[in-house]
């Protein structure tokens, strides 16, 4: 597929917004559906502070599709009913992209996530940072995440995380 730049940007933005929408809707199967159907599909969430010091450890380290599927199980089955639930609102903005080959594009975007605990009802910032994404492009003009690294500027989180950032 040879996409024009506007077509490519539209595909990227659709995927970024679909992911934000799935997360803010707590739709974990919908979140998973934004990832490519490839074994190496991955999601990482970690403090940029770790990355800058060559420390790979993260808050979430889902380096294969099986772990992405397990994360749906964590949230929907294993953890159900044990935590103080909270709403999130993801604001995401593409800042750069680079097409690697006909099927692959690397995308950097900024994000900020607001959190509103259901019990307290007071909104605060949960995290800010960058998504470093590798996306797979399909023939129909769509895009899926092959790899996402949520790199948090927020090195000290204001609470535990239930949902991916």
């Amino acid at each position: 597929m040879t996409a024009t730049i506007p077509e490519l940007e539209t595909a990227i933005d659709r995927l970024l917004l679909a992911d934000a929408n799935a997360l803010d809707s707590k739709d974990m199967p919908g979140w998973l559906a934004n990832y490519a159907e490839e074994d190496q599909a991955s999601y990482y969430c970690r403090a940029a502070e770790n990355t800058e010091h060559n420390l790979e450890l993260g808050f979430m380290f889902d380096d294969c599709r099986a772990r992405l599927e397990d994360r749906v199980t964590y949230v929907n089955e294993i953890w159900a009913g044990t935590f103080q639930d909270y709403r999130t609102r993801h604001f995401v903005q593409r800042v750069s992209h680079r097409q690697v080959d006909a099927r692959t594009v690397e995308v950097v975007s900024n994000f900020s996530v607001f959190m509103t605990p259901m019990d307290a009802g007071v909104t605060q910032v949960l995290a800010a940072g960058r998504y470093l994404d590798t996306m797979r492009l399909s023939d129909d003009g769509g895009a899926k995440l092959l790899s996402r690294r949520a790199e948090l500027d927020t090195s000290v989180l204001p609470r535990y995380l239930v949902y991916p950032i």
């Binding site: 772990r67 935590f83 103080q84 535990y160």
Partner: peptide, 23 residues
């Protein structure tokens, strides 16, 4: 690395609930 990130911390499979209990 794979086990540490996902098992026992504030977002860990068997410990995220602990964090909620502190609150």
């Amino acid at each position: 690395l794979r086990q540490s990130s996902n098992l026992l911390g504030p977002c860990g499979l068997i410990s995220m609930e602990d964090a909620s209990i502190f609150h």
